[in-house]
C-alpha cells in the first residue's frame, strides 16, 4: 500500500495552519478536540498498536495528568504549561506502578485489568481521594496558559498550541518507531515468544512502553485542563477510553497517519451528525460498524503487518 505523498501531507499541514483564518470558533474548537484526541490516540497507539498490549483504560493516565496540572495550578499557582513535564512524569510513574504486576497477563485479561484501573481512578477522583481532587465537582478556575508572555484564551490560539504539540509528537514517534526500541515493540506484538528468543527483554519493553504512552497521555491531560479550565471526573469515564481504543484500531493499529484520519472521523463524525439531533449517536455506531466491516485491517494499516517478519527491517525505512 502506498504511503501519503509528501504533497498530500504538505496540503494537510497547510490547511491546518490556515484553518483558523477560514473557520468559525466552533469549527476551530472541533479541530482542537480532534487534535487532543489525536494526541491521546497516538500515545495509546504506542501501547496498543506498536506493542500489542490491550489497554482499555487509557483515560486513567489522561486523568492523572489533567488532575496533576489542575492541582499544581490551583493550589500552588504554578503556570499551567510548566506543569506539563511533571504531569507526564506522574502519569508515567503511576502507569509503571500499576502495570508492573499485571503487564504479563494475556490479552483479554490485561484488557479487563486496564478497564479496572480506569474505573478505580475515576471512582477515586469522584470520592475526592486524599482531599485533592474536589470530588464530583472536580477542580475549577484553572488559569489560562501563558506562552512567552502571551495568554492563550481563544480556540484559535489553542489550535496552534495543540496541533503544534501534535506535530512534535508525530515527529518524535516516527523517530521512535524507526529506532531499536520501536522495532523491539513490533517484534513483541508479532510474536512474543520469538521476541524473547532473540534476546528481547519483553517485560522491560512492555513496562517502558506503558510508562511512555501514559506519560504522553498525562501531558495531553495538561493541555485539556488548560483548554477547559475545569477538570471533573465525567471527562475521564470509561467511554473516553473506549473512544481512544476505537480510534487506534480503526486507524489501523501502529499506523500514525491512520490514527490521525481516524481521530478526525471518531471525533468529527458525532459533530457532523448533530443535524440528526437525538439520533446522532445511532448513526455514529452504525458508521463505526460499517467502517470496520469494510476495512477490517483499519483505515490505513501499518505496513509492517503486511510483510513477513524477515522483511520487517527494511519496512522500517
Amino acid at each position: 500500500m502506498k504511503r501519503f505523498k509528501p504533497f498530500t501531507i504538505a496540503l494537510f499541514v497547510a490547511s491546518l495552519v490556515f484553518a483558523p483564518l477560514f473557520l468559525n470558533t466552533y469549527q476551530v474548537d472541533v479541530l482542537n478536540s480532534i487534535g487532543l484526541y489525536t494526541l491521546l490516540a497516538l500515545s495509546l497507539n504506542l501501547i496498543l498498536g506498536e506493542a500489542g498490549l490491550f489497554n482499555m483504560g487509557h483515560a486513567a493516565f489522561y486523568a492523572i495528568g489533567a488532575y496533576t496540572s489542575a492541582i499544581l495550578n490551583t493550589r500552588y499557582q504554578i503556570p499551567i504549561l510548566w506543569t506539563l513535564p511533571l504531569s507526564g512524569l506522574i502519569a508515567g510513574l503511576f502507569a509503571l506502578v500499576v502495570a508492573r504486576p499485571v503487564v504479563h497477563l494475556r490479552g483479554d485479561y490485561l484488557l479487563i485489568v486496564t478497564i479496572g484501573v480506569g474505573e478505580i481512578v475515576r471512582i477515586a477522583l469522584v470520592n475526592d481521594v486524599f482531599g485533592l481532587t474536589g470530588g464530583a465537582n472536580g477542580i475549577f478556575s484553572i488559569s489560562r496558559p501563558k506562552l512567552l508572555g502571551f495568554t492563550i484564551r481563544q480556540p484559535q490560539e489553542f489550535h496552534y498550541l495543540i496541533w503544534g504539540f501534535v506535530a512534535l509528537t508525530i515527529f518524535l514517534f516516527i523517530r521512535l518507531k524507526q529506532s531499536r526500541f520501536g522495532r523491539a515493540l513490533n517484534y513483541l506484538r508479532e510474536d512474543e515468544v520469538a521476541a524473547e528468543g532473540i534476546g528481547i527483554d519483553t517485560n522491560y519493553y512492555k513496562l517502558a512502553v506503558f510508562g511512555l504512552g501514559a506519560a504522553w497521555a498525562g501531558m495531553a491531560g495538561t493541555l485539556f485542563a488548560a483548554k477547559m479550565t475545569i477538570v471533573s471526573p465525567e471527562s475521564f469515564s470509561f467511554w473516553e477510553s473506549v473512544m481512544l481504543f476505537m480510534i487506534v484500531i480503526l486507524g489501523g493499529a501502529g499506523s500514525i497517519t491512520g490514527i490521525v484520519v481516524a481521530a478526525f472521523l471518531v471525533i468529527g463524525l458525532p459533530e457532523l451528525f448533530r443535524e440528526f439531533a437525538g439520533a446522532r449517536m445511532l448513526v455514529f455506531g452504525l458508521v463505526m460498524m460499517v467502517m470496520m466491516v469494510v476495512r477490517p485491517q483499519g483505515l490505513l494499516p501499518a505496513r509492517s503487518q503486511q510483510l513477513s517478519p524477515t522483511l520487517l527491517k527494511e519496512s522500517n525505512r
Binding site: 473557520l23 466552533y26 469549527q27 472541533v30 478526525f264 468529527g268 463524525l269 459533530e271 457532523l272
Partner: peptide, 8 residues
C-alpha cells in the same frame, strides 16, 4: 467532513 462542519 471539514466542509460539512462549515455548513449551515
Amino acid at each position: 467532513l471539514g466542509l460539512a462542519l462549515g455548513g449551515g
